[in-house]
């Protein structure tokens, strides 16, 4: 199945693109999406998705179905074809 993935802030900079369609196995979870992306997107972007030990970044926010949740908390959310997943690395003021 295909899901639409949108990249924000440092992820967008590291990848050089704002969004793309990603092929995933049917009924893949948010965790599976993030692990697949981290394995294929290069280190610059991957560091915003997973820690050095391979866990999901605690402060990466993931928006699915208009709810933003830290990645670890919605890791088991099952995705459906056509879902839009927005990835927000932590940013701050200044």
């Amino acid at each position: 199945m295909k899901v639409r993935v949108e990249y924000s802030a440092q992820l967008r900079t590291a990848l050089g693109r704002a969004a793309e369609d990603v092929d995933l196995p049917d009924a893949a979870t948010v965790r599976e999406l993030l692990i697949q992306l981290a394995a294929t997107c290069g280190d610059d972007a991957a560091q915003h998705l997973v820690t050095d030990s391979g866990d999901l970044r605690p402060s990466l926010l993931v928006i699915v179905n208009d709810v933003a949740t830290p990645a670890r908390r919605n890791a088991s959310t099952t995705l459906r074809p056509g879902d839009v997943v927005t990835l927000l690395p932590p940013v701050s003021g200044g």
Binding site: Q47, H48, P58, S59, L61, A68, P70, P89, P90, S92
Partner: peptide
């Protein structure tokens, strides 16, 4: 803290804006 359980280690205080 519900959104950011830790101070994110990768955040750099100078950024484009």
């Amino acid at each position: 803290a519900c959104l950011y359980p830790e101070s994110p280690p990768l955040w750099k205080r100078e950024f484009p804006v």
